[in-house]
């Protein structure tokens, strides 16, 4: 099968890979780049555990074609902590005990980060809407909602552009 060359940015670093036609972004990330932070929960775009940012927008990487990401800027949880400092969202999830098994956590974090990029001061309803494509089976969601709201407060206190 012909391989398709891809050139993209992953968490700020330039990458070049060859992928099979039809391969998903999730497979590209996990099998080719070694970034295992995006999880595979359903492979059909229903659980949100594979959520990453593509050019700043949340994408379900399990149903995003890798070949469509040529030239794209891809962000995963691996890039969330900048210069060794945890992102406020990561702090908040810890602080609010908002992770149990941890499998949905990377997707939740990326969905929340995508929200902050367009809406730095989200209401509870905004947060609920942003997380509604992400399934958590452990927490009952409330701690996650609280964590995201609290991170938004921290970030808006530390000024614009913090996301």
């Amino acid at each position: 099968m012909a391989k398709i060359p891809l050139h993209f940015i992953l968490n700020g670093e330039e990458r070049a890979e060859f992928v099979d036609s039809g391969a998903t972004l999730l497979r590209l990330l996990r099998d080719k780049t070694g970034d295992l932070t995006a999880k595979s929960g359903c492979l059909q775009g229903t659980c949100g555990t594979c959520t990453v940012l593509v050019d700043g927008a949340p994408r379900l990487s399990c149903i995003t074609l890798a070949e469509d990401c040529d030239g794209a800027d891809v962000e995963t949880v691996a890039g969330l902590a900048a210069h060794g400092q945890l992102h406020p969202l990561q702090h908040a999830v810890m602080e609010h005990f908002a992770a149990q098994c941890g499998f949905c956590t990377p997707g939740m974090l990326m969905a929340a980060k995508a929200l902050f990029l367009t809406n730095p001061r989200p209401s509870r309803e905004d947060v609920v809407e942003a997380l509604s494509g992400n399934i958590c089976r452990c927490t009952g969601y409330e701690p996650i909602i609280q964590a995201v709201l609290s991170a938004a407060q921290v970030m808006s206190a530390s000024g614009p552009g913090a996301a």
Binding site: Q44, T46, V127, V128, E129, L131, S132, R137, E142
Partner: peptide, 17 residues
């Protein structure tokens, strides 16, 4: 058979617990 059809309450369906 999947999360489209297997129903669970999401973050918008939470009571005061």
């Amino acid at each position: 058979v999947d999360f489209n059809e297997y129903l669970m309450p999401g973050p918008g369906n939470l009571p005061r617990t």
